[in-house]
Amino acid sequence: MDNFEPEIVAFCCHYCGYTAADMAGTRRISYPSNVKIIRVPCTGKVDAIHLMKALEKGADGVYIAACLEGDCHFKDGNLRAVAHVEKIKKTLEDLGWEPERVAMMNFSAAMGQQFAQAAEEFTEKIKALGPSPASQATSKAV
């Protein structure tokens, strides 16, 4: 699986995560194209079901990029997102999947550099884990 290119979905909040991603763009800091971003108003809006759906449909890794803790524009949405991620990690563990396929990250709007670096590291991590069972199953189906 040397040329394995993982599919990664990042749910980013409008105020910080998504803005940090834009900031990486503004500064032309590159990160792997494997990462595809879905914008949400607040990471507290990301239902645990959405994380599961992304994995079900074929994502090899999913993460949530929220505001720094204490900086959520809706008080505590990002802390709820942590809880959702932890819950899904536990589910994956129970299923015998690698819980590392789901992750929580926090950025301030200015942290473009860190956003790109985290995207790179996460992609590398998922590459090392290999394709998820669901994405393997779906690619076989093609």
Binding site: E7, V9, K36, I38, V40, D47, I49, H50, K53, A54, K57, G58, A59, S135, T138, S139, A141, V142
Partner: peptide, 16 residues
Amino acid sequence: DDQIIAKIDGLFERYN
């Protein structure tokens, strides 16, 4: 929810 899930579906449409 159906808008968000539709986006996920769209992203992986070539598979499904």
